[in-house]
Nucleic acid binder design. Structure first.
Length: 593
RNA sequence: GGUCCGGUAGCUCAGCUGGAUAGAGCAUCAGCCUUCUAAGCUGAGGGUCAUUGGUUCGAAUCCAAUCCGGAUCACCA
């Protein structure tokens, strides 16, 4: 149990005994004491004063004395300032926290709770390579999965590939016209990039044709409708849906190139999926549920035979769920997939990592699922994240300002190598170890830079700041870990000796233990909020405090064996928690750097 | 126009389930490497928490209105 929960329990008990009234614990708050005051944790008593008809000093004295009397091993002192009761927690309590957990790599993780969570993330289109926006999605999806796993949930990571549709046909048409049979093998170009190149070519050709048509007097709208290459793409989509063999063959081949390319990127990023869904399989899902919805009266049919749902009572609009020609729309296949996922996983909650431009879509999806009576539909959660922008503004395909995922990773790793070579601290590393280190530092920097921002907020990606390895960065945290490990390489913890801490804890020692003690609460909070930035901030705080500590105090030359063993355990536990916390963000930490 | 989200230091971001004098990093300035890794540490300057009103012992935090920025309101996905 966390110290805050312990204190809360003691205060509730004290209040019950002192006033013969029962309290839930919500009537007061337990906060960390501000550094400018004496004490470790503070009971904010304002909410209790009126109901108990007590003065701040009166209640503070009653509570403080009671706590000291009944829980002397925990509390050693208190002081009252206005309505704040500042409690000092005994050094022995903190030393126990340290000696009891320093060597537990799973510290902070919860027992499995038997609840199942499906996380859907990445979900790319298969017509172009991944970019920075996808990276935010992928980092978030992975990290949230790791965090929920640590919080005790059973996680199923899924991905739906948007592998069909007019956008896919565009790159196929362009390939047919301009590629001369080029493949990733013949060109040496990564498959997703190759296909993306033809998607761009389609756009260029389209522009040319539209311009030509407009020169003959057509307006823009008509020209776009009549451009031959566009007509060809539309015909190809029709052929695809009709199952025309040569179209399907090309579609399969080009998609396979893209998947091979994506796999390389996923592997490099260090993420994976338990299950892939393909839109080409799911896009017809929904006929059955439309029939069911009609039967239940959730949907209704218009004269033209299209099917709708009326969400005006919920503050939304009417929404179509099936076209008049009987085909499913986007929302329908998503409902179908939601049900399919439930059948497969019996999830308690289902998380969709999707950009915030689809907020409305997911509101509708959840509402419809509820109306259809899908079990656990209240567990549907749209983990909505804001767009990634550059300092110059939004990324635009047309203007070529899209930051490619592979490129940015290459660059981060390159700069990591340059910087590492400059510092010259890696003598004795093999070539393989060096490459691993550059990856760890470069990718870590990228993930940290993106995950440190609250998901729901838009973020500005400044390339220059992202490759800075100082300050609030992954390198800073990784470096702190390497320092701790360097000390432990010189002398490991003596397991047979248990430090007493009788000399008392110095401020930085205590601060560090107090931070370490909070790690389980941090995981809990990050899981409850689906927010990796909580973990990122914590890791940074921990690293910062650790750096201050090792700069200020010698570990190996501590004044006594007891002190040395205590500090070695501080190094060990800090290293463990940093490793564990960074792993929740998908970031590795090196032994040396 | 309706709905939703955001606005905190020059810049990038924390803090938002109400608590004490609003915090980090970058940038700027001043110190610290014969001592376990200086990718570090210590310190300084820098704020009308968009604006106005309300709620109360107390508001960056909650409520309302206004201003600014963004998203969305497709028989696209």
């Amino acid at each position: 149990m966390s110290i805050a929960a312990v204190i809360q329990g003691h205060v509730v008990q004290a209040l019950n005994e002192l006033f013969q009234q029962s309290f839930s614990g919500k009537e007061f708050q337990i906060n960390k004491t501000k550094p400018e005051f004496e004490g470790d944790y503070t009971v904010v008593m304002f909410g209790l004063l009126k109901p108990l008809r007590q003065s701040p000093d009166g209640l503070g004295k009653l509570l403080g004395d009671h706590l000291l009397q009944h829980h002397s091993p925990v509390f050693t002192a208190y002081n009252i300032i206005k309505g704040f009761l500042n409690l000092t927690v005994s050094d022995s309590y903190w030393v126990d926290v340290l000696t009891g957990n320093y060597n537990n790599p799973d510290f902070g993780k919860k027992e499995k709770n038997g609840r199942s969570v499906v996380v859907e993330y990445a979900s790319p289109n298969t017509n172009k390579p991944l970019h920075l926006g996808h990276l935010r999605n992928i980092f978030l999806g992975w990290s949230v999965s790791e965090i929920l796993d640590a919080a005790g949930y059973m996680i199923h990571k899924t991905c739906i590939a948007n592998d069909r549709g007019i956008h896919i046909c565009k790159s196929m048409v362009a390939w047919k016209h301009f590629a001369n049979g080029a493949t990733p093998e013949t060109t040496g170009i990564k498959g997703d990039h190759l296909v993306g190149d033809y998607y761009v070519m389609f756009g260029n050709e389209m522009k040319k044709q539209v311009a030509d048509l407009m020169a003959t007097g057509l307006n823009k709208e008509d020209a776009e409708k009549k451009a031959p290459i566009m007509l060809e793409a539309q015909q190809m989509l029709v052929d695809w849906e009709a199952g025309k063999p040569e179209v399907l063959a090309l579609w399969q081949e080009m998609n396979s190139w893209v998947y091979a390319g994506f796999d390389v990127t996923y592997k490099r990023v260090g993420v994976s999926f338990d299950k892939m869904y393909y839109e080409s399989d799911t896009y017809l899902l929904g006929k059955k549920l439309v029939a069911e919805g009609l039967e239940k009266g959730v949907f209704y049919k218009k004269e033209d035979n299209s099917v709708w749902v009326d969400l005006t009572a919920d503050g939304l609009d009417e929404k179509i769920v099936q076209r008049k020609d009987g085909t499913a729309v986007y929302i329908t296949q998503d409902i179908g997939l939601a049900i399919q996922k439930y059948d497969e996983y019996k999830y308690d909650s289902s998380i969709y990592v999707v950009g915030d431009e689809q907020n409305y879509h997911f509101k509708v999806l959840k509402l419809i699922c509820e109306k259809l009576g899908l079990p656990s539909s209240e567990g549907i959660y749209h983990l909505s994240y804001g767009m990634v922008e550059l300092p110059t503004g939004r990324m635009k395909t047309r203007e070529g300002t899209v930051v490619d995922a592979d490129d940015i990773m290459d660059e981060m790793i390159n700069v990591a190598r340059q910087k590492t070579e400059e510092l010259g601290k890696v003598s004795g590393f093999t070539e393989e170890e060096l490459l691993k280190l550059y990856n760890t530092i470069g990718l870590g920097a990228l993930k940290f830079f993106i995950l440190r921002v609250d998901p729901k907020k838009r973020m500005i990606f400044n390339p220059e700041e992202s490759i800075d390895f100082h300050g609030f960065t992954a390198s800073f945290v990784q470096f702190s870990h390497a320092r701790a490990k360097a000390i432990l390489r010189n002398e490991a913890v003596n397991e047979t000796y248990t430090p007493e801490g009788n000399e008392g804890l110095l401020p930085l020692e205590k601060e560090l233990i107090m931070l370490l003690e909070q790690y389980p609460v941090v995981i809990e909070q990050a899981a409850a909020e689906y927010n990796p930035s909580v973990v990122i901030s914590y890791c940074y705080d921990l690293a910062k405090t650790f750096n201050s500590f090792v700069t200020e105090h010698r570990v190996l030359k501590a004044g006594s064996e007891d002190k040395k063993q205590l500090r070695l355990r501080l190094c060990q536990m800090t290293a463990n928690v940093i490793t564990s916390g960074m792993k929740l963000a998908g970031i590795e930490v090196p032994e040396r750097m």
